[in-house]
Nucleic acid binder design. Structure first.
Length: 276
DNA sequence: ACCCCTGTTCGGCG
DNA sequence: CCGCCGAACAGGGG
């Protein structure tokens, strides 16, 4: 489930443990999510203070005293939550952090997620990204044009899913952006008009900002009128045209799109505006 | 029962 | 050697 805003929501679930000392740690070390984790460093977290956390795209980083960092990627089905001190872990709770006032739990049934541990002043190479965050000042229009130029022969859906360019954007966000831009997911980025490129960047930022504000605060608070609500309901209907959505595999992922809002084409087009 | 999946990596193939 | 694509990972939900 977790994309940009859901990741932020889950990050906050662990805020209850901030500035507290980790008094106990339970883990199922054989599980797949620890496949890249240094278990020695992970166990060293015991007795340390949970100082701060941050998110970058779909990655989460939790900083502890002693220059220790815990990194988590939630994969397809991961989630974080806080429980009372006396909580007993359940079958998919792979990592359980005990504090005096709360218990922080990492759960992931499908185990596509990842736990990383590092020691050092810097949080290390895992928690970093080649490009700027979508909502940062560095995510400029000229930079966006460079991206488009570099991937001119990519379908725009595949383009949006590239984490190096769009950290945090996942399948549903990409579909939301394309629908609100009136762009078919299979259109090559090189074919977009100047206005469409500019609109694509703008809508991407607005949707990220709105999603962070709403979903980041309350998991299921998805803005009314968004394609999201129709995406996987048995018969998805375009909120604008009330006609069935198409479901096709584009860029390796199932995509939902409206044939009226998002007609396919192979040549230059005009910028499309839509108010949602 | 069967088919689907909001992510990422890897190996085969052209 | 490179890029694209499907498979694989593993379990839950419709």
């Amino acid at each position: 489930m977790p994309e940009l805003a859901e990741v932020e929501f889950y990050r906050k679930q662990w805020d209850l443990g901030l500035q507290q000392v980790l008094v106990g740690l339970e883990l199922h070390e054989k599980r797949r999510v620890f496949r890249k984790c240094d278990l020695q460093i992970l166990r060293d977290l015991s007795g340390k203070t949970f100082q701060r956390s941050r998110a970058l795209g779909k990655k989460l980083e939790f900083a502890f005293s002693g220059d220790l960092f815990l990194g988590i990627h939630l994969g397809m089905s991961g989630g974080l939550r806080s429980e009372p001190p006396q909580f007993s872990s359940e079958s998919h709770d792979h990592l359980v952090l005990r504090f005096s006032k709360c218990t922080l739990v990492y759960r992931d049934p499908r185990m596509f997620g990842l736990v990383i541990c590092q020691k050092g002043r810097e949080s290390g190479d895992w928690f970093s990204n080649s490009g700027p965050e979508i909502l940062s000042d560095a995510f400029t229009l000229p930079l966006f044009h460079q991206y488009v130029k570099r991937k001119a022969d990519w379908g725009v859906k595949k383009f949006l899913l590239d984490q190096a360019f769009f950290p945090g954007v996942g399948n549903w966000m990409a579909d939301e952006i394309l629908w609100q831009c009136g762009l078919n997911p299979a259109i090559k980025t090189g074919v977009l008009s100047e206005g469409e490129v500019s609109n694509l960047r703008c809508k991407t930022r607005v949707i990220c900002r709105t999603a962070l504000r709403r979903i980041g605060e309350k998991y299921d608070d998805v803005p009314k009128g968004w394609l999201f609500h129709e995406r996987w309901s048995g018969k998805g209907i375009c909120p604008i045209h009330s006609i069935p959505l198409e479901k096709t595999v584009v860029g390796g992922r199932t995509s939902a799109w409206c044939p009226k809002c998002q007609p396919f084409r192979t040549g230059p087009g005009m910028a499309v505006k839509k108010a949602v």
